[in-house]
Write a protein that binds this DNA or RNA. Structure first.
Lengths: 223, 223
DNA sequence: ATATTTTTTTAAGCTTACTTAAATTAAAAA
DNA sequence: TTTTTAATTTAAGTAAGCTTAAAAAAATAT
């Protein structure tokens, strides 16, 4: 399909996509504007333009919603982003906190042709290094419904880490030094609900995480 | 050093760099404009802007010349371009005629950090798949003075292919099917100067090339 | 040397992607 | 319900990177 959009509009579309999925965040202009570091006025303006191009559905004072072709575009960019992250990590050895930054740029100037080559080289991977699903070339994406953040877990159950969300060094350094990787097994010992903390046991060690970390570690039941 | 320039200005700077080296081509606005597919007016305008940023030296009605910092910028982009070409060819298996097209895009959104990672992965390669030198991280570049196009070669001498210039499929298909690669040995049998043709012998086969191809195959004495 | 052609430059205008400031509408609080 | 606050939209303006058209300068031909 190959994107024709500019970098600015690609990032705009991408942000709407993420906010439509991510709970808690609305897709009104101000919300998108804040994320992208532009003014509300600029976001409204962009909304009007993308609406003309039929990439979003937009009525004044309403939330923004991707159209079918807008969603296809978002998934095409997301595919490139996650293929690059996987490639940069697995092949070039970039750290978890470095891959997002670089993929964020490369995704915009990557042809469908090149994306396919990267995909082939990696053996058609299902997920990126964070555990996020890589959209397929046909614009489908497999959602992992059974995955949820650590601080929502019930106590005394065995889980597997399914996803590590984010891009800051501190978080991934913590995960690394405590052997928390995508695929790691762990046990949830206790939920300190009032203090928003979770005690887990991983690789023989007990750790107490506050929700700053625990809401970015996604897990699923380990069967 | 990390470029701050836009894609348009990076391509402009790059073109001046190539034209300053490449014999026959001048660096006046019209020449650059033609190469980039923009109008003379746009080229003059860009010249004025880049001159303000001290990236080129420019006086009205004169040829454009890169400043020291403009040249550093050009070499930084060229480094990324040639590292990508090498990587795409050697690692992802893209064909000779495909790598330029992709590198032409990626070079603009590649951080110095990532360029270094690619360089390390490839083992600090001296040349790209065309045989062109890859600029060093410090902005130096080793010029191969002894290399020249096939149609300038003296007869009955043994040569080595040092460079294959261009990006069209037809040329590289021809080279491939006749075993003409960077590093191939060949003999020049005869120069048909009037008809601008060169007869060579490579891998046991005799070939007659017209200057469309022979001026893009660079050779050097095989010692 | 003069006339013609070509190139370069300037000027005015367009689109994209922003900005700030003011006006409008919607949402929340009193 | 009315007032206040917050978000959204419109309006006007900017910079980049182009365009076409006209003017100016340089190069070429006669």
């Amino acid at each position: 399909m190959q994107n024709t959009g500019s970098i600015a509009s690609e990032n705009f579309i991408k942000t709407i996509y993420h906010f439509q999925l991510g709970a808690g965040k609305d897709t009104r202009p101000g919300s998108i504007a804040k994320e992208l570091g532009i003014t509300n006025a600029a976001a409204t303006d962009m909304a009007r333009k993308l609406s003309q191009k039929k990439l979003i559905e937009y009525e004044k004072y309403k939330a923004l919603k991707l159209s079918k072709s807008g969603e296809r575009m978002a998934l095409n960019i997301l595919r490139k982003h996650r293929l690059w992250e996987t490639f940069l990590h697995q092949v070039l050895g970039l750290s978890m906190h470095e891959i997002h930054r670089e993929a964020e740029l490369l995704e915009h100037l990557t042809s469908d042709f090149l994306a396919d080559k990267i995909n082939d080289y990696l053996g058609n991977p299902a997920t990126d290094p964070h555990g996020d699903p890589i959209p397929n070339v046909d614009g489908t994406i497999s959602m992992d419904e059974k995955s949820f953040p650590l601080h929502e877990a019930s106590v005394d159950q065995r889980y597997m880490v399914s996803r590590l969300s984010g891009s800051d060094k501190e978080f991934f350094d913590f995960c690394h030094s405590n052997k928390i990787f995508v695929g790691s097994k762990l046990n949830v010992n206790k939920q300190y609900s009032n203090n928003k903390m979770t005690e887990i046991e991983v690789d023989g060690a007990r750790l107490i995480l506050n929700d700053n970390f625990s809401n970015r570690i996604y897990i699923k039941k380990d069967n």
